[in-house]
Simulated assay, not measured.
Amino acid sequence: MVASLTYMPGTGDEDRQPVDLYSSHCWIGSIPELRTVEWDYDVTPGNLTGVTRPAAERHVKLICTSPAILDSMRAVFDADLLNRTPGTLTVNGEWSQRCYLTASEPDETSPSTVTAQLTIVLLDGVWRRDADTIQCVAHHGDTGNTWLDLPFDLPCDLQAPRMSASVTNQLPYGVKWRMIVYGPASNPRVSIGGNEVMVDVLVPDGGYLTIDAIKRTVTLTAANGDISNVFGKARRGSGQGSGTYVFEPIAPGTSVIEWDGSFGFDLTPVEERSAPPWSTLS
């Protein structure tokens, strides 16, 4: 069962509107094929290798009582295919995946209704949903960054206390995430569950740094809107599990977040499922 189903075109500007696939004139009433789960793998003695969730072709039935709407929908789908700009299919306003609608085969036609089989190519192999964003604000004391100077020397250097927060992953496997670091910030460093996320870059006042563990991109946006690729400035250690991997998944359970408090940032965990959960409507 589905409560809402939309397709956001990949072609167009920021004002483009989604195609409603569960409206009073055109609707897909059931999506069992979209909930189909199938992994790719190679069988080896005692185990599996090459385990992946590949792109998949699925078929759904569309019923439409407005030929004009059906024609405009097909034009949108065709534009994305011609431009190689996939749209995004969203189920019940929560779970999304990039896709193309590659075919439409009429089953039944009448003066008032058209029933057609749509072919949807799901590109990501997973459905994604943004979890709640954790907002970690910059902290500056009433006296700014000025600290009291003791009248004697110590055998060690005193530092400002580190700030902390936490993030909870309720799934039994690691999840990816997006982070936005707000300037000004110099070589921002955030520890998530003991893994250090570090980018050796100066984030200007009014600018921001975006780290996307899904797309594996690191970009710097200046105050005037100019965007630059700073992937090479991100520390990647020796890869996942090294303790300094910039795209390290958030582990199951609760992870402590620590940073020096000199800058603020938002952290958004992104849940991934093989299919839209059956409990989506609850």
Rank of each mutant, 00 (worst) to 15 (best):
residue 215 K to F: 11
residue 238 S to T: 15
residue 223 A to M: 09
residue 216 R to M: 11
residue 242 S to C: 14
residue 215 K to D: 12
residue 226 D to V: 14
residue 224 N to K: 09
residue 214 I to H: 05
residue 243 G to K: 14
residue 239 G to N: 04
residue 240 Q to M: 13
residue 221 T to W: 07
residue 219 T to A: 08
residue 231 F to G: 11
residue 239 G to Q: 07
residue 217 T to P: 02
residue 231 F to H: 11
residue 245 Y to Q: 08
residue 230 V to R: 09
residue 240 Q to T: 14
residue 240 Q to G: 13
residue 236 R to D: 05
residue 228 S to H: 08
residue 246 V to T: 09
residue 230 V to M: 07
residue 227 I to P: 01
residue 228 S to Y: 05
residue 217 T to D: 03
residue 213 A to G: 06
residue 221 T to S: 07
residue 221 T to I: 09
residue 236 R to A: 11
residue 225 G to R: 06
residue 241 G to D: 06
residue 216 R to F: 06
residue 216 R to V: 05
residue 214 I to D: 03
residue 215 K to H: 12
residue 223 A to V: 09
residue 245 Y to N: 04
residue 236 R to G: 06
residue 244 T to Q: 15
residue 239 G to C: 06
residue 223 A to W: 01
residue 224 N to L: 03
residue 232 G to P: 06
residue 216 R to D: 11
residue 224 N to P: 03
residue 228 S to C: 06
residue 222 A to L: 14
residue 236 R to F: 06
residue 235 R to E: 14
residue 235 R to V: 10
residue 226 D to C: 08
residue 221 T to L: 07
residue 229 N to E: 11
residue 216 R to P: 03
residue 222 A to T: 04
residue 228 S to K: 13
residue 223 A to K: 14
residue 242 S to I: 07
residue 213 A to C: 10
residue 230 V to Y: 01
residue 225 G to W: 00
residue 230 V to H: 07
residue 237 G to M: 08
residue 219 T to W: 01
residue 237 G to F: 05
residue 218 V to W: 00
residue 222 A to F: 03
residue 222 A to R: 11
residue 237 G to A: 10
residue 217 T to A: 01
residue 215 K to L: 13
residue 246 V to E: 04
residue 213 A to S: 12
residue 239 G to Y: 02
residue 218 V to E: 02
residue 223 A to I: 00
residue 238 S to L: 15
residue 242 S to Y: 06
residue 236 R to Y: 08
residue 245 Y to W: 12
residue 230 V to Q: 04
residue 213 A to N: 03
residue 216 R to K: 15
residue 241 G to E: 09
residue 213 A to L: 02
residue 214 I to P: 00
residue 216 R to W: 09
residue 228 S to L: 07
residue 238 S to G: 15
residue 231 F to D: 13
residue 219 T to H: 07
residue 243 G to N: 11
residue 217 T to H: 05
residue 220 L to W: 01
residue 229 N to H: 09
residue 246 V to G: 01
residue 230 V to P: 05
residue 222 A to C: 08
residue 245 Y to R: 07
residue 233 K to P: 00
residue 235 R to F: 10
residue 229 N to V: 04
residue 233 K to S: 15
residue 230 V to W: 05
residue 244 T to L: 13
residue 230 V to I: 08
residue 243 G to C: 10
residue 215 K to E: 15
residue 223 A to L: 04
residue 219 T to V: 12
residue 215 K to M: 10
residue 241 G to R: 08
residue 221 T to K: 13
residue 228 S to P: 09
residue 222 A to W: 00
residue 215 K to N: 14
residue 224 N to R: 10
residue 243 G to A: 10
residue 245 Y to M: 07
residue 217 T to F: 00
residue 227 I to H: 07
residue 244 T to K: 15
